[in-house]
């Protein structure tokens, strides 16, 4: 009698794989539209053609352009005009500190943002000047000279004070680029920063109330409270996160989240930080996984040899 086992195995494996393919890769390809990554090229934004002069840029940022009316620049000792909660009360969201903007964001994006914030942020649909809805950041209309040169100077200044790309940690990237709108509870991150440890519950609750006040203003501004991102690395896949950060509208048409304009490298770091929060043990999983696989293969080989020995007498 011939051995039918190989044939049976082929049939079982084939039906299993077919079912798997149908309910996983195929079904998901039908459920979610595929968004191609543009590699953070921001092709719709005009490139900077002028060579910027950082010194002049500094004069503009801290002078004529009036950036520091709203933004702090901790690196250069420029303090914030008001605390985060008050700022959110008046602008909807706390304007970011500009120290590392030059490292976090794409230069083209920064240039466009200075000239036309709602356009760069891809939220033009939310602001209608005719109805008096203005983006809280006032567009820079020029300081009297060549506006393109002035913008290039300001970008050059921001780049000159920012941390070097290799000093920008994933945690910094996330906190500075996303952390004014999103919490990350599992990393103790609130929109006001890392929640300190308080000895007394009263102090801790007082801090929570400040966060709630900030969130209230933010909710009013955004239409809904941006979600906590602790587990987003596991609830969304990496490709989704990356294309969403690049252009939120491509994945969720009409979403209130602006295009943040980060460079490809910053986005990569942001996602790495999300992985550190939502899939903390991924490195351990891989190394333990390898060892378990090696062990299990040895286990199977010994089982096979034992079976061979026992069955020798049976034929």
């Amino acid at each position: 009698m011939k051995n039918k086992e190989p044939l049976i195995l082929v049939v079982v494996v084939a039906f299993t794989l077919l079912t798997y393919w149908l309910v996983e890769p195929f079904a998901h390809s039908q459920m979610h539209k595929h968004v191609e990554s543009q590699n953070f090229a921001y092709a719709d934004l005009a490139p900077i053609i002028k060579t910027g002069d950082a010194a002049n840029g500094k004069a503009l940022v801290t002078g004529a352009a009036a950036c520091i009316g709203c933004h702090s620049i901790a690196k250069d000792g420029v303090p914030a005009g008001m605390d985060a909660v008050t700022a959110a009360g008046s602008y909807g969201v706390n304007p970011p500190d500009l120290s590392n903007a030059g490292a976090l964001y794409d230069p083209k994006f920064l240039a466009d943002l200075i000239k036309n914030p709602a356009h760069a942020l891809n939220v033009a649909h939310k602001f209608d000047a005719a109805k008096g809805q203005m983006h809280p950041m006032i567009a820079f209309a020029g300081a009297g000279g060549d506006i393109d040169q002035e913008v290039a100077d300001m970008v050059a200044y921001l780049q000159s004070i920012a941390v070097k790309a290799d000093e920008l940690t994933p945690k910094m990237a996330f906190e500075e680029a996303c952390g004014r709108c999103h919490t990350m509870k599992y990393e103790n991150w609130t929109q006001l920063g890392t929640k300190p440890e308080f000895k007394f519950e009263k102090e801790s609750l007082a801090y929570d109330i400040k966060v709630l006040e900030y969130q209230e203003a933010l909710t009013k501004y955004m239409g809904k409270l941006p979600p906590d991102l602790s587990m987003y690395f596991r609830s969304r896949n990496e490709h989704f996160l990356s294309t969403f950060i690049e252009n939120p509208q491509s994945q969720l048409a009409g979403t209130a989240m602006p295009r943040v304009g980060v460079t490809a490298e910053t986005a990569h770091k942001v996602i790495e930080h999300m992985a550190d929060a939502g899939d903390t043990k991924r490195h351990e999983r891989e190394s333990v996984g390898k060892n378990v696989m090696i062990f299990i293969i040895i286990f199977a080989i010994f089982a096979l040899l034992w079976k061979k020995q026992v069955w020798r007498d049976l034929h």
Binding site: I296, L304, W306, V310
Partner: peptide, 24 residues
């Protein structure tokens, strides 16, 4: 031990598949 040794052989092969799924 006759059939059980075969059971164990199949279990061994199954566990390779199983732990591959668990980790990867």
């Amino acid at each position: 031990n006759d059939f059980m040794s075969k059971d164990m052989m199949v279990v061994g092969i199954y566990l390779i598949f199983f732990f591959y799924l668990v980790f990867f």
